[in-house]
């Protein structure tokens, strides 16, 4: 394994404990590599395992009753699977910043926003306490919150949805981490703020060579700011493709996802959806997990084993067995 990837996820499998004996896989054979300074978009239907994958990067799977069952997970050469609490304390929040998906419920309800920012800032034990307020205001300004002095004294229920979200982003960047994992950071933000936050993320990348994983359902947004896009379906990564060439996708699922975009239809017109429903965890088909929904399916797609990603071009990998036959 070459040592200089910032993050390397290989064949990761995440299970949840359903009962004392029963286990359920919610992520299986997910693979992903990130280099320093890269912005990766992570897309896929609701329930495909994006959040769980993100949680594995900050060691908080346990809070959802989940754990890593097998595979590899390395950050800057450190094995995160066997990482002890002391190692996590040095990584979580400091070297890997996390904006959780439930940012709306995110800020602690019984702490003021000021107290929460202080907590994020003081993870660095050497930070001079006298500069705390200055740094807090600076962070709130970076994420463009109006009336920052008032906001420091407020509780989360007194903020609008978008304000809460920006507070969570401010906390995540407080330590200038090497990797920012942002799970839907711009949902519920108006497009102007959204564009500003994206500019901010790009600027952070430029200044500190920070890498970013951006989970979003907003495909045009991903298309615009991410270097590569990684697509998840039913707990697995099915394609990795340079964002700019997404139209040249070689996976029917990615194409179907793109074709169900609302901007392609007239108001109240007939909307396109992907065939069928995403297979639920615990009932994934063997072989290609998209086979029951795919227009291109052939018998060979229903093999017994999982389909690995095949490299078919620069930064382009797909797990579709018929990648060279599908046309848009």
């Amino acid at each position: 394994m070459s040592g200089n990837h910032l993050l390397e996820i290989k064949n990761l499998k995440i299970d949840v404990r359903v009962t004392k004996k029963r286990r359920l896989s919610i992520v299986d054979t997910a693979s992903l590599i990130i280099e320093p300074g890269q912005i990766i978009g992570l897309i896929g239907e609701s329930g495909s395992g994006k959040t769980m994958l993100c949680r594995s990067l900050v060691g908080t799977l346990g809070r959802r009753g989940a754990y890593i069952a097998s595979g590899q997970l390395k950050f800057d050469g450190i094995d995160l699977i066997s990482a002890k609490q002391s190692v996590w304390n040095e990584i979580r929040g400091k070297r890997i910043g996390y904006v959780p998906q439930s940012a709306l419920a995110g800020p602690n309800p019984v702490m003021t926003i000021g107290a929460q920012l202080a907590e994020a800032i003081l993870q660095d034990e050497n930070f001079p306490k006298a500069d705390l307020e200055k740094r807090s205001l600076e962070l709130l300004n970076i994420v463009q919150i109006r009336r920052p002095e008032t906001v420091l004294k407020q509780y989360q229920h007194e903020l609008s949805g978008g304000m809460k979200q920006r507070v969570m982003i401010a906390c995540a960047i407080a330590q200038q981490p090497q990797l920012i994992v942002a799970d839907e950071p711009t949902t519920g933000l108006d497009v102007t703020v959204q564009a500003e936050i994206m500019e901010l993320l790009k600027q952070i990348r430029k200044d500190f060579n920070t890498s970013i994983i951006l989970v979003s359902h907003d495909l045009p947004l991903i298309n615009e700011i991410c270097d590569d896009t990684v697509v998840m379906h039913a707990g697995t990564t099915v394609e990795k493709i340079p964002s700019k060439s997404i139209k040249a996708s070689k996976h029917p699922y990615t194409l179907a996802l793109y074709n169900s975009r609302i901007d392609l239809v007239v108001p109240k017109g007939q909307l396109k959806t992907i065939n069928g429903q995403p297979p639920s965890v615990g009932s994934w088909p063997e072989g290609c997990r998209f086979s029951e929904r795919c227009d291109f399916v052939k018998d060979k797609c229903r093999v017994k084993q999982d389909l690995p990603l095949i490299t078919i071009g620069t930064s382009h990998e797909t797990s579709c067995l018929r990648y060279d036959e599908i046309a848009r």
């Binding site: 896929g44 609302i262 992907i274």
Partner: peptide, 20 residues
Amino acid sequence: DEPTSAIDQSAQAQLLGLFN
């Protein structure tokens, strides 16, 4: 209030169809 902010395009299409 923001009923579709967290769902993918396909699920969104399905939900909007239902609203329709």
